[in-house]
Simulated assay, not measured.
Amino acid sequence: MKRYILLSAIIFGILLLSQKSIAQGCVAIRQFSGIGNAVGQLNVQTQGDWNISTNYRYFRSFRHFSGTEEQPQRVEQGTEVINWSHGVDFNISYSFTDRLFGTVSLPFAYNERSSLYEHGRQSRHLSYSGGLADMRIGAGYWLLSGEKATKGNLALGLGFKLPTGNYNAQSTFYNVGPNGTSEIRPVDQSIQLGDGGFGITLESQGIKQFKSALFGYYNAFYLFNPRNTNGTRTSRSRQSEAIMSVPDQYALRAGLFYSIKQIHGLGFSLGGRLEGVPIRDVIGESGGFRRPGYVISVEPGVSYMLGNVTATLNVPVALVRNRTRSLTDIADSTPDNYRHGDAAFADYLINFGLVWRIPKKIPEVFNSL
């Protein structure tokens, strides 16, 4: 029983920590996967272990916020912007040693965006994007191994984000050309498939056993995007926002997981989640157009393990949505004209994942449980 509970919590962690962010509406919090995909058995892995996982994410954003203040009149007047987003990641990881592991993540996305203002403010139309997003590769290292790791462990990771996604995806926009004709233009930043930058990711994650069936987990992530702008035009009126920015991104998640002793393989989780886009990048310039902001969510989840396959469903529900002021908002504000842009956010996300663990051998520590 102890062995089953521990394995259930461990494999649950693989899926929980590999289900990352996806653009939360108009704030372009892009989907990513970090070292959470690469854990052979999360806090106990064995050299030669493989993990193959896939994660699906969906949301619909439509509630507009300026700062933390909602603008309900947008929905009432029918002027809200609506994003529908679907993302799928395919991830493969391998344990080089009992501590060192590597991972490769191949993400795909399909997005639709409905708006009035992007189509001459005369009628509502859709724009689209779909295809390969920005690929990630990385490695991580667990500080503990063997029996010492059975009660808790901590991993550090380094990765790279490659600009494989189209950051100049285009669609048809109506009523915007001469005499009200249509034109082919780049889609909004929030549904671009990539950001056009080579990124560096730093990540840390951990798990701690408090009782026989109760575990704590956390995952912290930061994406450094040194590139300033990517050359994709925005069709916005302000010159400082004419080209899209290549922004940093961050996320923090923590919570508890409980394995049900009476039902082998079943577990529940409850945690908190913070993710966002900063106003300024840590490395390089921060010019161009971006919608900075963050989302704080409560994240319930359920998982079930059958053999070496585990399924997990998490539904983060937004508690706080904040579209912070951009550098352009700050620069263009005067005592008589305070500027603060808005953005549309989702009420919740749906994250569903499957992981197939292919062990080289069962660690000896489990045989003694």
Rank of each mutant, 00 (worst) to 15 (best):
V355A: 15
E203M: 04
V246S: 02
I82F: 03
C26T: 14
K261L: 07
N55A: 14
S259F: 04
S114K: 11
I200T: 06
R253L: 08
L313M: 05
K208N: 14
A149R: 07
F198M: 12
Y110Q: 10
N230G: 11
A213S: 14
L7H: 13
S171T: 03
F345S: 03
N91D: 07
G267D: 01
A318T: 13
S33E: 13
S129A: 10
Y58E: 06
L6W: 08
S93Q: 06
G197T: 01
L223Y: 00
S145D: 05
A242N: 10
N51H: 08
T234K: 10
V302Y: 01
S129W: 00
R185N: 12
A155T: 09
A344H: 06
Q73G: 08
R253H: 11
F59M: 11
T232K: 02
L106A: 06
L266M: 00
D342V: 04
P226E: 06
R63V: 09
F12N: 15
A311G: 14
D89W: 00
V302H: 02
I260A: 06
S303V: 11
P226K: 08
V88T: 10
L144M: 14
Y56V: 00
I10M: 15
A343F: 03
T164P: 08
I260G: 00
R60D: 14
H86P: 01
I184Y: 03
Y58A: 06
F352D: 00
